[in-house]
Amino acid sequence: MNITTHINGKSYSHDVEPRLLLIHYLREVVGLTGPHIGCETSLCGACTVELNGKAVKSCTMFAVQADGANVVTIEGLASNGKLHAMQEAFWNEHGAQCGFCTPGMIMASKQIIDRNPNPTEEEIRHGLEGNICRCTGYQHIVNAVKAAAKAAGV
């Protein structure tokens, strides 16, 4: 089936099998290896991308379901060589250790701030329930989301 998607501001058209998962489409067909495959069972969130403004697990979606959609991956956040505020905050607050969860973690964190510019710590943790990190213990990630919210507020 032929699909057209708009990924990080660019249009792509490909003929794909309906059973191709969006994560495999992004990584193997389009060549965007930012979104990671952690668990492949919808639990870890490493594959999180934005689909029409909503954070989704791209391992639990077929590429054909994204036909006509706007997709943003971690590669699409920085613009003109300048990091997105959430990337900047993860850097400053040491929100990444090994970095494997980070592309999904940043996309989920961006969703929190997009929907609620001033989240409480509880709201931040609720917003990150779909993302697992084996390294940081989450505290620095929560700090990063708080810092990004604060930076956006000033």
Binding site: S42, T48, V56, K57, A108, E129
Partner: peptide, 9 residues
């Protein structure tokens, strides 16, 4: 229900 990504879909 589940997590944000699950609730979004």
């Amino acid at each position: 229900i589940g997590d944000v990504q699950v609730r979004n879909m």
